[in-house]
């Protein structure tokens, strides 16, 4: 449904905690700050590049809290051997950005 977001509330609060621990500036994390976190997943860099492209919805080179949750969600799915989609499914677009 329109109101459904694939990032579950318990996931979102976990990802929000990680987001805050990275000390966002004006509510945004730069690529420099996010990169090592995603690299920790040990996923191939080309996969992480796709994750970034899908997550940085406004293409400003930074992730806000919702975009970061999308990135982390995709990383966790990829670790479970689910392929990263080529286009962000509507269920993964944060409700604030629809």
């Amino acid at each position: 449904t329109d109101s459904h977001w694939a990032v579950r509330p318990e996931e979102k609060s976990k990802f929000d905690g990680i987001f805050d621990s990275l000390v966002p500036v004006n509510g945004l994390l730069s690529g420099e700050k996010v990169k090592p976190v995603l690299m920790n997943s040990k996923l191939p860099v080309d996969v992480l590049g796709k994750v970034w492209d899908l997550s940085d919805i406004d293409k400003d080179g930074h992730l806000d809290k919702d975009e970061f949750a999308v990135a982390m969600h995709l990383v966790y799915r990829a670790l479970e051997k689910e392929p990263v989609p080529s286009v962000l499914p509507s269920s993964l677009i944060p409700p604030s950005k629809r």
Partner: peptide, 13 residues
């Protein structure tokens, strides 16, 4: 800005 297009905002490229 990002003259190379959106891909240059990607820290993994």
């Amino acid at each position: 800005q990002y003259p190379g297009g959106s891909s240059s905002t990607n820290p993994f490229l």
